[in-house]
């Protein structure tokens, strides 16, 4: 750790996780130095993130110690135009498969790695799939057909709005109907004095109401 801090600017990200940033040209020197002179002597992952707005890949070599208690992120940026990197296979044999993976997913070349052929994709002729400009949804619609029944799978917010408005309309209609009925009944009540016949009108009213409320529920 002391060796590392002497030569490189080390920032601590969280507990037991450190970060060193280098440029593409002095990467090989840095990885050689770190893997031989400091305690971070094992490679545990090569991560790559595509920052298409800034037009570069951010490669992160995650190195770890023999005691497996600390991790170091060795970062560098790499151009997006199918550039290549020196392979670290000679230092870490496990890098072979990771580089193979990155080559397939991003199109990054690794000089010195002989096994950069198909890894998980077979007879793939499109863009490397993890690059940001590869549109997986367009690819899906071009190559696959969906079963019927997905047509109602619209944008949720638009659909919600439409249904809410429909429900509002229904409610307004219902309210208007009820209003009309109330007026009618009031008229009847004013015309007729109270009679035992009112029970029947009540029942009629509820029968009329029921289908309306059902429709409103469907609308929601």
């Amino acid at each position: 750790m002391k060796n590392l801090q002497k030569t490189y600017e080390v920032t601590q990200k969280v507990e037991r996780l450190f970060e060193v940033t280098v440029t593409q040209t002095d990467f090989w020197e840095a990885v050689l130095y770190i893997s031989t002179q400091t305690e971070f002597n094992t490679l545990s992952q090569i991560a790559c993130a595509d920052w298409i707005e800034e037009e570069h890949f951010l490669l992160t070599y995650i190195l770890t110690t023999d005691a497996r208690d600390k991790n170091l992120m060795l970062k560098l940026t790499l151009g997006r135009e199918y550039e290549s990197m020196p392979s670290v296979m000679t230092l870490f044999p496990q890098a072979e498969v990771m580089e193979r993976d990155l080559h397939e997913m991003y199109g990054i070349g690794f000089e010195g790695n002989e096994t950069l052929y198909d890894f998980v994709l077979e007879q793939w002729h499109d863009l490397p799939p993890l690059r940001r400009e590869f549109d997986t949804l367009a690819f899906v619609h071009e190559h696959f057909a969906f079963k019927g029944g997905r047509e109602d799978n619209k944008d949720v917010k638009v659909e919600q709005k439409r249904r809410r408005e429909e429900a509002k309309k229904q409610k307004a209609l219902e309210a208007a109907k009820q209003e009309a009925k109330k007026q009618e009944t009031e008229k009847q009540e004013t015309e007729k004095p109270k009679e035992p016949n009112t029970h029947a009108t009540d029942a009629e009213e509820t029968q009329d109401k029921k289908p309306d409320t059902k429709e409103a529920e469907d609308g929601q």
């Binding site: 990200k13 545990s44 992952q45 993130a49 920052w51 951010l58 992160t60 995650i62 497996r68």
Partner: peptide, 22 residues
């Protein structure tokens, strides 16, 4: 917009995730 590496000991060994937000 940062990145992080976390690891968990699964039943077969270390599982590591590199995650970057934007």
């Amino acid at each position: 917009k940062e990145d992080i590496y976390v690891a968990t000991e699964s039943a077969r060994g270390e599982f590591g995730y590199y995650m970057a937000g934007d």
